[in-house]
Structure formats: C-alpha cells, structure tokens
C-alpha cells in the first residue's frame, strides 16, 4: 500500500503541490483554465504554517478512518486492496452532508458546492485526497521541487 510521506524539514512552502492538486482534479487539467470554469478548483493537500515554518497537512488514508464511519451515504470507503480512502467511484454517491468534514481530525476534507445550480443536479460534494487514481504517482509528489512528498510503500 502506498501512502504520502512528508519530509517536513525540506519543505520551503512553495505550494506547488496545492496547484498541482487543483489542476489534476479540475476538468480542464489546467490551472488557469480551471479558475475560469465552475466549480472553483480546490486543493486537497494543504500547506499550513506554524512559527513561520511551512507544514504540509496531508490525508493519511487512516487505518480506521473516521470519515468512513461518519458517512451516512456509504460512499466514503476504504479500499481493501490499496487502502485508499475515497468517496468517488462507488455504488453510492456523495450527497454533500458534510459529516466527513466534521469527522476528519486533520481537517483535510473540504466542501464543494455550486450555489448557482439547484435541482437534481445541484453539485455538492466532499473533496478529499484520492491519491490521483489516473496517475502512477500523485500529482503533488511529481510537482514538489524539493522532494518533500513521497509516495512510499508501507505495511499496515
């Protein structure tokens, strides 16, 4: 199973991982174009700061994920093989109840909703790290110039 590991001391706080994440998860696959469209692109990895030092906060794809327990639609699931916790691509769909956001102790799940749209197609979805299923290595790892992030094989 692969997990994102962070070498904290090396991070310079350039936030390229955030940009790469937004880009990867936008329909346009391009940051500039994505900002023009809707919904507004949002990152799923967060470079926070403490005492003037940057600190990336990432989803850990927990062994006992609270977001999965909290999900009332049953769409947040932990893949038994890869161990990736994700709310997309399952039989059930995310309804935007925001319970996972309330449950995640690291604060790395964010709401996304389009207020302009209403009705059946109203877009409301919780966004979280999905480990970039379309890529071999997550976009943030590729984008990091300082080799802070690493997709490392770990044993659970």
């Amino acid at each position: 199973m692969k997990r994102l590991m962070v070498k904290l001391e090396r991070c310079s706080g350039c936030k390229r991982c955030e940009l790469a994440c937004m880009e990867e998860h936008s329909a346009q696959k391009n940051y500039c174009l994505a900002t023009l469209g809707a919904p507004e692109p949002k990152t799923r990895i967060f470079v926070e700061s403490i005492n003037d030092r940057p600190m990336p906060v990432v989803c850990r794809h927990c062994n006992e994920p609270l977001c999965v327990s909290a999900c009332m639609a049953g769409c947040m699931q932990k893949d038994p093989v890869t161990g990736i916790v994700n709310n997309m691509g399952h039989e059930q769909q995310c309804v935007g109840c925001w319970m996972c956001i309330m449950a995640c102790p690291y604060g790395v799940i964010n709401p996304s909703f389009d207020v302009a749209q209403t009705g059946k197609n109203a877009f409301a979805q919780a966004l979280k790290c999905d480990f970039c299923p379309e890529r071999e290595t997550p976009a943030c790892v590729v984008a990091c110039p300082n080799d802070v992030l690493e997709a490392e094989e770990i044993k659970e």
């Binding site: 994102l4 070498k7 967060f46 926070e48 062994n63």
Partner: peptide, 25 residues
C-alpha cells in the same frame, strides 16, 4: 490548523518522516 498539533496523531499513522539534518537545509 492541524499544523499546530503535529505531535497529536489522533491514533493514526504518522506521515511525517524525520530525515538526517544534513538532508534538510
């Protein structure tokens, strides 16, 4: 944010690797 409580892992895996100081800065 959570950055203020890095040492609290809330019972889950710690993704922060310590690296030799020579790799750092």
């Amino acid at each position: 944010s959570y950055a203020y409580f890095k040492d609290e892992n809330f019972g889950q895996m710690d993704p922060y690797k310590t690296i030799p100081a020579c790799w750092g800065s």
